[in-house]
Design a protein around this nucleic acid. Structure first.
Length: 334
DNA sequence: AATAGAAGCAACCGCAAGGTG
DNA sequence: GCACCTTGCGGTTGCTTCTAT
């Protein structure tokens, strides 16, 4: 007995999602919440299979997603978690609020893997590659590798003396989890330290608040440098609503995570942040349901704004990725 | 300016796990 | 325990964009 396909593929659309499809999906989930994905396309009027809708929502449309490149700290975490968990991207993603398994997987395959290889580190085992391998793969990098090895040995010794403070919370939780899961791999070196060097060597330092999309109360206008944000500001003044923080709750979106507490991200040093493992309760980087964000949903639902209409006609992926805060999220789409 | 190749990433596919009757 | 269904996961594909020549 063959397995039933997830959907009847005849007549269903594939490939990149259009803005119109996105809008339909968002509208549907806004009004109905996340329910049986198989039924979603039919009810939402989409010629997609449920699987595709779920994927689109979880990987791209979900409001709590961060956009843009992984920050330095996030990348460190990915490497460290990968050393412990292997290719279990969803597990890794669960430690990085706002990031999807797909995103992390892609980033690993396109960026981190290369960097590690370049440094003579096997991205699978997180151990140093053998001399034969590294000689054939990267003779020009020989000197760099030697420096790396020296660094590793040096810091391994330092680590024995004094553990790094910033790692304590994160490591304890991940290690506990890894124990529960009968940890498969044990990295030879502390990958956090490996990556510290990695960044020294070739990765430009990126301001974290530029990547992590800080969210501030609407009274202090956020300047995330995107034209999308600035255009939304002018639009948002007309329908500002002090009660709007309850707007989505009114729509009974039970599957969403309701956050009422702002954290002033300007004062947050992510390096010292121990809340990463607490993402469901203290999502400090994304205060999702701030006024600006709610207004953007308002716009989504009331799409009679002809000014934005023309933007809707082009597929989303034709637009450059921008640094998104919660305000610009929906305006980035619409 | 044109073109080829590389890089990046959204989306697809198939399988497995978990839930339900 | 079985059959069936839905959801989640990880590997892979293929399109778009970028970069080098």
């Amino acid at each position: 007995m063959g397995r039933q396909p997830c959907c009847d593929k005849v007549g269903l659309k594939k490939g990149p999602w259009t803005a119109e499809e996105d809008k339909k999906l968002i509208n549907f989930i806004l009004t109905n919440g996340q329910c049986c994905w198989r039924a979603v396309p039919k009810l939402a009027g989409l010629l997609r299979c449920g699987k595709s809708c779920r994927l689109r929502w979880t990987n791209y449309l979900r409001p709590d997603l961060k956009r843009g490149l992984l920050s330095e700290y996030e990348e460190k975490m990915v490497i460290d978690l990968h050393a412990q968990l292997g290719n279990r991207w969803s597990k890794i993603a669960s430690h990085l609020p706002g990031r999807t398994d797909n995103e992390i997987k892609n980033h690993w395959n396109t960026h981190i893997k290369k960097k590690l290889k370049k440094m003579g580190i096997d991205p699978i085992t997180h151990k140093l590659l053998s001399n034969e391998q590294t000689q054939t793969q990267q003779q020009p990098m020989e000197q760099e590798k030697h420096q790396q090895q020296c660094f590793l040995i040096e810091h391994e010794n330092e680590k024995n003396k004094e553990p790094l403070k910033q790692e304590t919370s994160f490591e304890s939780s991940t290690i506990n989890e890894a124990k529960e899961e009968q940890q498969i791999m044990t990295p030879l070196f502390d990958s956090m330290e490996i990556v510290n060097e990695l960044y020294k060597e070739e990765h430009p330092i990126i301001k974290q608040n530029a990547i992590l999309a800080p969210c501030v109360p609407s009274s202090s206008s956020t300047t995330t440098s995107s034209s999308i944000s600035s255009s939304s500001n002018s639009n948002s003044n007309s329908n500002s609503n002090s009660n709007s923080s309850n707007f989505l709750e009114d729509l009974l979106l039970h599957d969403f995570e309701w956050s009422h507490n702002y954290v002033d991200n300007n004062n947050i040093n992510i390096e010292n942040n121990n809340n990463y493992n607490n993402n469901s309760n203290n999502n400090i980087n994304m205060a999702l349901w701030d006024d600006e964000f709610i207004r953007s949903w308002d716009f989504v639902l009331n799409d009679d704004d002809s000014d934005k209409k023309q933007v809707l006609d082009a597929p989303l992926n034709q637009y450059p990725k921008v640094i998104m805060d919660s305000e610009s999220w929906a305006y980035g789409l619409f």
